[in-house]
Design a binder for these strands. Structure first.
Lengths: 119, 119
DNA sequence: AAATATACATTGGTTTCTTATGCATTTGTG
DNA sequence: CACAAATGCATAAGAAACCAATGTATATTT
């Protein structure tokens, strides 16, 4: 099972930033594989989504890059800039909070808000 | 605090369906208020997003409508169709599962997948 | 040798939402 | 009582974010 693609919207950049926070440096293809691996194939990041996203993050100043050659093949590593590290914490925490709120929404019987003070 | 708007993307229809599953019938404005209430103002559904979404769900055959007059003001109630009920269960369960997967992604140290078999 | 995996990238199109606008009625407040 | 705010519907133009497809090239597996 793979999640319908609209769910990933809005979460991609945060996922990428989080991976880079844990792994120092990664290249595009590696990121797609890592996400597949970590989610048991449930989340597949397409290249058409990833590369533009990486480029955007770089232009925003959150990522820095270094190119490496493996034989004749290029490999472009991305790392978090200092700003990127700060921003990553913010975005990860926001997304995490959002997930909690959504989980609460989906699990509660919304007909009766009860004393369900969602934090 | 309000979540940055891109996070809501892809989840709106599911939220609406879930609310209708619990509350039999609701009208548009009521839905926006309910979501605000249930999420402590963290999620604000704009009308420009909601109404087109409701219309789409109706055209997809998931919702039925009945119009009521409160004084001179129109109120349009939406309810789940039989198909809608089935679809709602699917979508709620998918989104819930997705939230779990995302939470796991964000909380784990992705540098070391460990024995973290994400269910 | 051929298929698959690795590795980058762009382009056109769609979906989904935001912002803004518009209209009308009802309720609350100074 | 006048005005603001809330209630309630709706649409339209534009932006954002992604997908599917395509392109190029090298490396590895069968």
């Amino acid at each position: 099972m793979i999640y319908s693609s609209e769910l990933i919207k809005g979460t991609l950049k945060t996922i990428v930033l989080k991976l880079l926070a844990d792994n120092k440096k990664m290249y595009g293809y590696e990121i797609t594989q890592k996400v597949k691996e970590l989610t048991g194939d449930k989340i597949q990041i397409t290249e058409g989504a990833l590369y533009p996203s990486l480029h955007a993050l770089e232009h925003e100043g959150l990522l820095t890059t270094e190119t490496e050659f493996i034989g004749k093949r290029v490999r472009k590593y991305y790392s978090l800039s200092p700003t990127g590290k700060v921003k990553t914490k913010e975005k990860v925490s926001e997304l995490s909070d959002f997930m909690d709120t959504m989980k609460a929404l989906l699990n509660v019987d919304t007909a009766n808000p009860a004393v369900t003070t969602i934090k």
